[in-house]
Amino acid sequence: MGLKQSLAVETRGLTKRYSTGVLAVADLNLQVRTGEVYGFLGPNGAGKTTTLRMLSGLLRPTSGTATVAGGVPGSPGSLARMGAMVETPAFYPYLSGRDNLRVVARYAGVPRSRVEPVLQQVDLTDRARHKFRTYSTGMKQRLGVAAALLKEPELLILDEPTSGLDPQGTVEMRELIKQLRHGGRTVLLSSHLLNEVELTCDRVGVIAKGKLVAEGTVDELRARSGGRALLVRATPVDQAQRVLESLLLPGQVQVRDGVFSLAVDPSQAASINRRLVADGVDVSELQVSEQSLEDVFLQLTEQAPTPTLPHKGEGG
């Protein structure tokens, strides 16, 4: 059975409210296309891990549905076609890395002969005979990826794979992720690190306070939130602000540390400069700024409304 309509993951109104009352994920509609590397981006506590746990069948959604690798999350059919590393890589501390993979292989019904290739793939062969409890954070993460690869899955779910890694380890993991997409594999990668998704992902979904606030390619997200901006350093600041606010819409002018960020087409730079000078403002700096994904991310996540969904029994 092929993956439904070339979507590796599809959620409809996926919602999780914990028994404590915390609404972790609210009405999430997510679509991950087959063969892409999808970055699931959000600040800590945004609901990324809860979503991935639901997609892996570890948590039951309060409402909504999901299809993962062509099946219901947590069903043997779905699990057989996906590999996942959710949150911390968890293994038996008294077993070696190799034995841990053998255990996982037995659970997954995968031949033992798969263990050595995945150890090689994550560059752990030399340390495979050592106990898991002696592993560094980076080695644990790599073993987690190796376990996820044992089934040669069509869909790979990685939750914060560079979490806790040093810069060298982060670079290595990033390279590994790039290799993993080969062969048409779909990778769903969660992260709170912007440059990580910018460097590795085809498309990005931004989640904040449990809701998906934006989805698209990195360029699309930049464009959606204003794309480029005009930066102006001018004095006196009060006078400059008055002029700019009379010239532009209120939402287009932002000032921070004496620098104005204007959400306008850069072609207007000359006319804005002329108007400021004509009104007695000294313009000392004027430049076009490419909005980074970080700006977009902050803009999207800060604007995200606190989700409100009715409690059970309230209807709707």
């Binding site: 069948g57 043997p76 949150e87 996982v104 019904g109 089934k151």
Partner: peptide
């Protein structure tokens, strides 16, 4: 304690089978 329950449950067998 080791959180290995989640490693096991994202393999192929159902929870009952595990």
């Amino acid at each position: 304690g080791w959180l290995t329950v989640q490693t096991i449950l994202i393999q192929k067998p159902s929870r009952s089978a595990v």
